[in-house]
């Protein structure tokens, strides 16, 4: 694995890692790590730094829905133009073109069931190319981006001489 993949693997798990800490962990010189990170940010290999949040433990507990969207591709533009019209709304957290029984998987986060329903009926369903939608609400998150929501966090090993 090259230096870029090594750095990305670490940052994907913990985006707060500094170039200095990555350098210690990997043995690459700190200046080289910093330069690679800067280059990857510029080249949009690294698009953003974020945190995995369990919103249920906060005062804000948004509703997340997966919406399957079937659409008619447009001449010369395929699915990209209609996808752009959908994912440009800030409520849309993710949007993927899919193989199989539907075309777009749209992941929406909003304040309430009602606001999600309104978003689907007022923003997505009326679009000309949209044939149908099916909305699935997420009831409980067990694991997201490789992180378990209820991990066994305590190191409860007894001290033992081995």
């Amino acid at each position: 694995m090259g230096i870029r993949e090594t750095i990305l693997g670490l940052l994907e798990k913990d985006s707060r890692l500094t170039a200095e800490r990555i350098a210690v962990m990997t043995g690459f010189p700190e200046a080289q790590v910093a330069a690679e990170i800067a280059a990857m940010e510029k080249e949009k290999v690294i698009l953003a730094y974020g945190a995995v949040v369990d919103w249920e433990k906060t005062d804000r507990d948004p509703v997340t829905a997966l919406i399957e969207v079937r659409i008619t591709p447009q001449r010369g533009q395929g699915f990209d133009r209609i996808a752009h019209r959908i994912y440009s709304y800030p409520e849309v957290k993710s949007c993927y073109l899919m193989s199989g029984g539907f075309d777009l998987m749209v992941i929406i986060e909003d304040a309430s069931l009602k606001s999600v329903a309104r978003f689907v009926s007022e923003r997505i369903a009326p679009l000309d190319s949209v044939i149908s939608t099916a909305t699935h609400f997420i009831l409980k998150k067990y694991k997201m981006q490789g992180t378990e929501f209820a991990p066994k966090s305590e190191d409860d090993r007894e001290a033992l001489f081995v």
């Binding site: 066994k152 190191d155 090993r157 007894e158 001290a159 033992l160 081995v162």
Partner: peptide, 11 residues
């Protein structure tokens, strides 16, 4: 903090 037990912390 214990760094004394000779076994993997991984499950």
């Amino acid at each position: 903090i214990s760094l004394s037990i000779g076994e993997p912390d991984f499950v």
